[in-house]
């Protein structure tokens, strides 16, 4: 049976990218511990609205851990701490104790400017994707799907890389604000598949160049990204990206 807990939420308020921002806090009383973290914030907002205050703004959408929209930095960990790795929306209040102070912050990184409160602008990821995260094909002209045989192991590994949801937790956790885990997961997916090989060199160069241009930092292999990735992407992807990139540059 669910039990109720009471705690304090310290949440970040910031009016646009130029505002300095500050914390506000609210006591939450008797919240059932089978409430999800975001539902708890819904309750917080309901109370704020009823008190005539402005609600707390944060991104969220599917609430089942796949859309990658939710992006809260909870008690020092992107998406909050769980054993298996999960997004904010899959965090439940039973992970917290009576009397806790829960600090909620936005992703803090130069490439992710704050729009409002904990809602940040992650369009940089779209720009990186646009730089090369695709195979250039024409609709309707593809050959039969079974004409390309792909070893199961490669297909499975490509699938693991493709699982990345683009939430940006890797950037949020990285002390260098590096997007290498995100970029390498995309590059890896295509690098592992024959369909992706023709453009592999171009892709690696273009995506890395765009990532650098957008102000993401340099990877120093701290592994903070893979530790917080809700989809368990690994830095083996980063090694693969480095390989692809070096190969491409050597071939130039």
């Amino acid at each position: 049976m669910a039990k109720n807990i009471s705690f304090t939420v310290k949440y970040w308020k910031q009016n646009g990218p130029k505002d300095a921002g500050h914390f506000e806090q609210k006591e939450m009383r008797n919240i059932p511990d089978d409430t999800s973290f975001l539902e708890m914030l819904d309750i917080l907002n309901e109370e704020l609205i009823n008190e005539g205050k402005e609600p707390f703004t944060f991104d969220h959408d599917c609430r089942e851990g796949i859309c990658g929209m939710c992006s809260l930095y909870i008690n020092g960990t992107p998406h909050g701490k769980t054993e298996r790795g999960a997004t904010t929306c899959q965090l439940y209040m039973r992970r917290f104790k009576d009397g806790d102070v829960i600090t909620v912050e936005p992703w803090r990184s130069a490439a992710f400017p704050v729009i409002k409160d904990c809602m940040v602008d992650r369009s940089a990821f779209d720009k990186i994707q646009a730089a090369g995260g695709y195979t250039t094909i024409r609709t309707g002209q593809a050959q039969d799907a079974n004409a390309i045989l792909i070893p199961k192991d490669n297909a499975d590994e490509a699938m693991d890389c493709a699982t990345c949801i683009g939430c940006g937790a890797c950037v949020a956790a990285c002390k260098n604000g590096s997007a290498m885990l995100f970029v390498s997961s995309k590059v890896s997916q295509f690098a592992l598949l024959p369909q992706g090989r023709p453009e592999a060199a171009k892709r690696a160069k273009a995506m890395v160049a765009k990532m650098d241009e957008l102000g993401f930092g340099n990877c120093t292999n701290t592994r903070a990204c893979e530790a917080v990735c809700p989809k368990n992407e690994t830095i083996a992807n980063i090694a693969r990206l480095n390989r692809e990139f070096l190969k491409a540059k050597m071939a130039d």
Binding site: K10, G21, F23, Y73, N75, G76, T77, K81, T103, E105, R108, S109, A110, A111, F112, A173, K175, N176, G177, S178, G215, F216, G217, N218, T220, N221, T222, R223, A224, E226, A227, V228
Partner: peptide, 24 residues
């Protein structure tokens, strides 16, 4: 990297177990 991290700093940070002190 400092620039990429942006001007604001986290109020609370928890170091994941996987991350070694030296690397940071």
């Amino acid at each position: 990297n400092r620039k990429a991290r942006g001007a604001s700093r986290y109020a609370v940070t928890a170091k994941p177990e996987k991350v070694e002190w030296a690397s940071q």
